[in-house]
Design a protein around this nucleic acid. Structure first.
Lengths: 330, 330
DNA sequence: CTGTTAGCGCTTTCAT
DNA sequence: ATGAAAGCGCTAACAG
């Protein structure tokens, strides 16, 4: 059956034989409504299946849409879906709803999404920013609603952000590879412009430096946008002239690719990676993983956002979540 | 800096020295606006950073909120996040936005979420229903907006749904185990009330029947709600009096649990599972997986929904997606 | 206790 | 080509 127009308070009022204001009072559980009148209204509401139009309600001054927007690169990536999970949890606790959009790491789309969400008058935004400089975007849009950045701070802006301890995490994992006797550790990274990559690379370099190993630019390969690309890069690192004997993978997609590469090459290459990957513990060979609670990351970002929505002012807050290294598999 | 109130068309009109109707015309790209006037308005819009309030716009008769709701059990589960990914893609193509909620497979929460989304006047709903009877819920709420169910049809209702070929998929995987010489195949399932489990169990039974094997109720264990629970169940099946020599896992979480169980027991138990699991191909022992394109599942459901939103009437449509069996790992 | 009124931000006749 | 005015569904004074 085709859908019907939703009944309004006016309809309820007519059926109950009262005025709309009385209906409004009943719906909002206000005092000073005669029990009898209330009963009539409640009946009419049930009979019509009335549900208050929140969009209309939000139009009143001082009211809000009770929605929050979340922009991630790609909800299908376990890292981002964990963020979404955590964010949804907090958002629901606050009686809000979550609008989700995928930027695909495309700046234009990110921009469009944020703008569209603002047009819907979200109370705030959680954004995993693309690599593009955000100075303009942030200045232009954060006037209207608070924005909290997740996983990485955008370029060109000092703004609220909840991030991971990328550098220390990467350093630790790379150090593990070094301690295991590897000397030529390849670095497989994603978009070179994304700042997390830079920090993780810094951790990689630091580990080499501490161990007194030389840094070889040929071992560093950014620009892998899928696990498949990372796999090819991994094979090349391991079998090509670079002669890598281990790999550090920049994020979960890269790790999956690296695992396949190592399997194809079938040498004794070592592997470490940023982010956890499901089933890594069942793999035949040990892998060092920089893990973190990404659901909590989403929660923290959402809490910070609601803090701002509640009116908390002050300088940009930067929350850094710790990571830990786990040796899984083997 | 705290956020400012968003400028309205009225503000723009004042700055541009025209009336709100003229601003509206410019914003909506209507003809019959003098170029000079248009320029003034465009300037004012840019100066103020005006963005049309979509909520207010949607209030006008005949207009819609251009939003769609998606209710899944848990976006962090790769199966559901893939659905979200596919849905988001189509929703965006239609110029809409996606509101996401997690039901946690709790009927009351599902109900609350759907109702809340309806209050926000979503144009339609995509729902992965809980196990509860939906006769009342569906009858009550589908009057206001079209609902398309994803992954499983709700109990007690004939409604639009996009589902998988659960029975045939399970049958094929179980048959694979039988052909591999296994005789006592344990079944690890989730919520016994979820209909997909029933269909998959039917496929399991059918495979046994075809092969002339007896069905043993003791081998069937529903009620595992996490991978950890599935692991314990798996260990019990393999080492307990049931003496299972293989396991069929009902869904991706169960498969992860079963993998751990088999690893703990360390026998030569066979394993098959519904849904794909990342990295399964790298595991040391072969596993039969019933795979499917779950992103496409989300896309199909969303397309069907927009079909209804566009006004297509007719009897409930049931779309069944094919599955395929892959032997991964080994 | 309840109804009348005004108005939120926007679109849409209807005049001019 | 532009403006005035009404109204979408709801809430919030303000009367009574």
């Amino acid at each position: 059956m085709p859908t019907q127009p939703t009944p309004t308070m006016h309809d309820v009022a007519r059926v109950a034989g009262v005025s709309v204001s009385t209906v409004s009072r009943v719906v909002n559980n206000e005092r000073y409504v005669h029990d009898e009148t209330r009963a009539k209204v409640v009946d009419a509401i049930a009979q019509l299946g009335f549900q208050r139009n929140e969009a209309a309600r939000a139009l009143r001054p001082g009211q809000s849409s009770d929605t929050v927007g979340l922009v991630v690169a790609d909800v299908a990536n376990p890292f981002f879906s964990a963020i979404a999970q955590g964010a949804e949890e907090i958002v629901r606790e606050h009686g809000h709803m979550l609008i989700v959009g995928n930027s695909g790491l495309d700046y234009q789309r990110e921009r469009d999404l944020v703008q569209e969400m603002l047009r819907r008058r979200v109370d705030g935004l959680l954004v995993v920013p693309t690599a593009h400089d955000h100075a303009e975007l942030h200045a232009e849009l954060s006037r209207w609603a608070p924005i909290v950045y997740v996983d990485r701070a955008p370029r060109g802006v000092r703004a609220d952000a909840v991030v991971l301890d990328n550098r220390a995490g990467a350093q630790r994992a790379v150090d593990y590879l070094i301690q295991a006797g590897h000397q030529r550790i390849g670095y497989i990274g994603g978009d070179p412009a994304v700042v997390t990559g830079h920090h993780r690379l810094a951790g990689y370099k630091q580990a080499l430096r501490v161990a007194g190993l030389d840094f070889d630019q040929a071992l560093v390969r950014f620009g892998n946008h899928t696990a498949e690309a990372a796999e090819e890069t991994g094979v090349d690192l391991l079998t090509g002239p670079t002669q890598a004997d281990a790999i550090f993978a920049d994020n979960n997609r890269m790790t999956v690719g690296a695992l396949h590469a190592i399997r194809r090459v079938d040498g004794g290459a070592g592997l470490a990676g940023f982010d956890d990957v499901e089933l890594a513990d069942l793999l035949p060979r040990p892998i060092a993983l920089v893990t973190h609670d990404s659901i909590e990351l989403g929660r923290r970002a959402a809490r910070l956002l609601f803090d701002r929505i509640a009116g908390t002012t002050g300088p940009p807050r930067r929350v850094t979540h710790r990571t830990q290294m786990l040796i899984r598999g083997g």
